[in-house]
Every structure is written in structure tokens, then in C-alpha cells.
Design a protein around this nucleic acid. Structure first.
Lengths: 116, 116
DNA sequence: AAAAATCGAAACGCTTACGTAACGATCGAA
DNA sequence: TTCGATCGTTACGTAAGCGTTTCGATTTTT
């Protein structure tokens, strides 16, 4: 059941959500960080640094730094993989789930408010 | 004619669009920058630094810096207001319009691809 | 057991962003 | 005309981002 959007609806939705998110939340995540966060929470685990780097098309240090920052913000955690100790498994947190839950609500709300 | 989205559709859409935008475009704009860009292009002018700062709920230097960066990227331009020379009018550019047009297409495409 | 491959992180120098405070330029009112 | 208010920018020190390269730890291969 796809979602059909007009050009004005598409950008209008992005506009309203981005604006409200900026107003509500002090944390100014980059698009990369948001992508990582959504990937971790919407796609079944396990998630590794290398895997995320490949999916986003960026280098590994980019992922490491994003995880550092979002870790400080409490949005994700890292745990060593005990089966292969070279790997690090990225795990979800309650705060991260809450952050995305609010974002989802925001998208739904702003979608309802769209004109035309 | 509002857009009705389920929670999974809302976050799924955001996920797919963010991910693809990161992959396609090297410029990693922050949510603040994207908000400014959309505000400039979707809301009738004139746009001033102070006005944008008020709308986003941030300080003026934040806007100035975002305009510096996006100006370097060719996404916006600034012109002195001749009627009141204290003001600066932020103007759209061809590249900026192109950037948002592609983003709009991406949102529409990913909306169509949404499952459920 | 030794060598090669792989993982994530750290180091490097540089760029961009932040918040707060101060700035010069300009306008409006006293 | 002078004084205060308002505009956007700059300056300051700090934090976080980048790409590239190197690193230690671990696993796999030979």
C-alpha cells in the first residue's frame, strides 16, 4: 500500500517535520546520523560499523564518530561481539527508541496537517 | 487532503529518503540547514536572518553560519535590502531549487515504494 | 606456528559548527 | 542632530565533523 504524494506535499511534509524537529529538539543531528539511527532501529540486527559504512556509502571512521556522538546523547550503545571479538555490535537504547517514536509521531501529525 | 501514515510508514519513509539522500549527495546538511533551505524555497519572500532565527528558534549567528555554508554550496544567495540597508534578503538559486527538486522526487519515489 | 586479512578505533591536520558577546552600519525618534 | 534601537556579522574559545592513515586486537589462512 504505497503512499502517493504530490511534489508540493512531499516537500511540504519534509519542511514541516524538519522545522518542528529543530524547534522541539536541541540536538541537531546530521542526515548521516539520522540515517544511521533509523537503520539501526528499523532493520533487524546485528549492526556493525563496517556494515553501516557499506550501507551508507561512507568510511568507517564516519560511523565510529557518529556512534561516539550518538552514544554520548544516549541514542545508541556499543557492545563487543563475543563470537568474533573484532566486531562491535551496535545496540538500541530506550532513549533512542523514544527519539524515533517522537519523530514518527511528528511525521504522522504533519502529514495529517498537509493542505491540498 | 491530508496524508495518512502508519507509524511504520512514517519512519520507513524517513529512513528510505535519508539513506538514499546520504548515498546520492556528498553534502551532509544538518536538519537546521535543511529547514532553512525549505523555509526559503517554500514560503513566500522576503526572508531575513532575524526572521529565520525566530522561526527556527535559534540565534542569529546560527543562521548567518548556515547561510555562509549553503552560500558556498551555491544553494542560497544574500542581497542587501535597499529599502532598509540593515536587512539582508536571502534569495533562492538555481542550484538550490534543483537540490530541493531532487529531494522532492526522492520523497515521492520512496513513498511509492513503501510496503504494507 | 607464522603470516595475512579483517575489525573498529585512534591519530593527524583541517574545516565547520556552537553559544555568548561585542561590533559597525543603519534607521527612527526625541 | 544626537541618541537609542535594530540589523547582520565578526570574534572568541570550544566542540564536533571530515578524509586519510596508522594502530592494536583478533581471526583466518597457509
Amino acid at each position: 500500500m504505497p503512499v502517493e504524494l504530490s511534489p508540493s506535499q512531499a516537500l511540504g511534509l519534509w519542511h514541516a517535520v524538519s522545522l518542528e524537529q529543530v524547534r522541539v529538539d536541541k540536538r541537531d543531528l546530521t542526515l548521516r546520523q539520522i540515517s544511521i539511527l533509523l537503520q539501526i532501529y528499523l532493520v533487524p540486527p546485528p549492526h556493525t560499523v563496517r556494515g553501516l559504512a557499506g550501507i551508507l556509502g561512507v568510511t568507517k571512521p564516519v560511523i565510529t564518530r557518529a556512534l561516539d556522538t550518538m552514544g554520548d546523547l544516549g541514542l545508541v550503545t556499543r557492545v563487543r561481539d563475543e563470537r568474533d571479538k573484532r566486531n562491535v555490535i551496535i545496540r538500541r537504547t530506550v532513549d533512542g527508541a523514544l527519539y524515533l517514536e517522537k519523530l514518527g509521531d511528528l511525521i504522522i501529525d504533519q502529514g495529517r496537517k498537509l493542505p491540498i
